[in-house]
Simulated scan of single mutants.
Amino acid sequence: MLASLVGFLGDFDLAEEAAQDAFTAAAERWPRDGMPRHPIAWLVTTGRNRAIDRLRRERTLADKHRLLLRDRMVTEMDEIDFDDSTIADERLKLIFTCCHPALAVEAQVALTLRALGGLSTGEIARAFVVSEETMKRRLSRAKSKIKATAIPFAVPADPMLPERLAAVLAVIYLIFNEGYTGREDLAAEAIRLGRLLVSLMPDEPEAYALLALMLLHESRRRARVVDDAVVPLAEQDRALHDSAMITEGRAVLDRALAMRPTGGRYAVQAAIASLQTEEPIDWAQVELLYESLEKLTGSPVVALNRAVAITEGGAPGRALELVDSLDLDGYRYLHSTRAELLRRLGRIDEAREAFTRALQLAATEPERRFLIRRLAELG
């Protein structure tokens, strides 16, 4: 609905206000009159009409009124059957609008998370490891630039698609990561968007690789959180893993690697995720893949994950040296990883302190329950 309103109105803030007005009207009228035949179309039409009325009342917004009168085909929304494919197309247009190269990449990702995924500013700030105030300013600047430069609401023409792909992939993966830590609906949305992107760009190996990565991670959801507490990979009941999703993820990864054998960042991550579905896990190979990924990305978070592989390979001391060299003090997983290393090395007091710090930064209840249990085990 929001994606459709952005397309009609050409303005993110106005579309969000229109969506609120439409839901208010629905809450008043539907219980009395019954649900309309096409509820999403009704909401979009109502929101659009409320926005037009608002613009007509506010003469100071003549520039926005002009946007509404641009050369667009006006469709009677009540006649449209908004099925899943229609909604998906609108969402894909919204992603590419948010990911326009006129915007900084971080702004592209943040704005799409806000507009498409419905994440709060605080949730997006945690994904970027920045303050909420910083993220507010970033989102505001992105919206302002879209209005000032009249960025179109459309999927780019074929020649422009590859250059826009990197930001779109980052958007989808961040939506998935937010869902993976608690909001299952967002993870499912990211996978749907991944499938859409593959259908739109069937010759792009990294689109397939990202879809494979998400499927392989999602296959472990039921085993990852048990009794409202996070369960580490080494302690998971593999009978709870979704074997069909693993099979699909590996097949999609094979397709990606067939097109690009060397693999990009998502292909490497998907290869790691595929190895982690095996029993036993080849941790030496996982470490090598993380090393390759670190060279591709330069990310300290990747280095932290490499430390986990080093630990599982039997060298927690070497892993701790790597962890202590990383500048990630505000990142909650740094402290939980460090705490686990210290625990394995028998440095209990330091482990307790690190688990406590991780608990202070924990963002979800399952994470908190896991950390509380670890602290209790330390005595």
Rank of each mutant, 00 (worst) to 15 (best):
199 S>P: 01
211 L>C: 03
181 T>Y: 15
184 E>R: 12
207 A>P: 11
208 Y>W: 00
219 S>I: 03
197 L>S: 11
211 L>T: 11
199 S>D: 14
222 R>Y: 01
200 L>P: 08
182 G>L: 12
212 A>D: 10
198 V>R: 03
201 M>G: 04
202 P>I: 01
185 D>C: 05
201 M>R: 08
183 R>Q: 14
209 A>T: 07
216 L>T: 04
200 L>G: 10
221 R>Q: 13
222 R>A: 13
208 Y>S: 08
189 E>Q: 14
221 R>A: 14
213 L>V: 07
184 E>N: 11
215 L>E: 07
182 G>R: 11
193 L>P: 00
181 T>P: 07
185 D>F: 08
207 A>W: 06
191 I>T: 08
205 P>R: 03
185 D>I: 06
222 R>Q: 04
211 L>K: 05
193 L>C: 00
214 M>C: 12
194 G>W: 02
219 S>N: 07
205 P>L: 14
202 P>Y: 02
218 E>P: 03
200 L>S: 04
184 E>T: 14
220 R>D: 06
204 E>G: 02
183 R>K: 15
198 V>P: 01
208 Y>K: 02
189 E>I: 08
189 E>W: 00
203 D>K: 15
190 A>M: 12
187 A>I: 01
209 A>F: 03
196 L>I: 06
188 A>W: 02
191 I>R: 13
222 R>T: 11
212 A>L: 12
217 H>C: 03
189 E>V: 13
222 R>L: 11
198 V>W: 07
209 A>D: 09
197 L>T: 06
187 A>Y: 01
191 I>D: 08
209 A>R: 07
183 R>G: 12
221 R>T: 13
195 R>V: 06
197 L>F: 11
213 L>C: 04
208 Y>E: 08
194 G>C: 05
182 G>W: 10
218 E>V: 09
222 R>M: 09
196 L>G: 15
192 R>A: 04
196 L>T: 00
221 R>L: 14
194 G>F: 02
213 L>R: 15
183 R>D: 14
189 E>T: 11
190 A>T: 06
202 P>V: 00
221 R>I: 12
184 E>P: 00
186 L>M: 13
213 L>K: 07
210 L>S: 01
195 R>M: 08
187 A>T: 08
205 P>Y: 08
201 M>T: 09
211 L>R: 14
185 D>G: 02
201 M>I: 04
190 A>C: 12
186 L>S: 13
215 L>A: 03
217 H>S: 09
192 R>H: 05
206 E>D: 02
208 Y>A: 09
216 L>D: 00
207 A>N: 09
211 L>F: 07
205 P>V: 11
204 E>V: 01
198 V>Y: 02
201 M>Q: 10
208 Y>Q: 07
194 G>I: 01
220 R>N: 05
200 L>E: 10
206 E>N: 07
200 L>A: 15
185 D>L: 07
222 R>N: 09
217 H>Y: 10
208 Y>C: 03
190 A>Q: 04
203 D>E: 12
213 L>S: 02
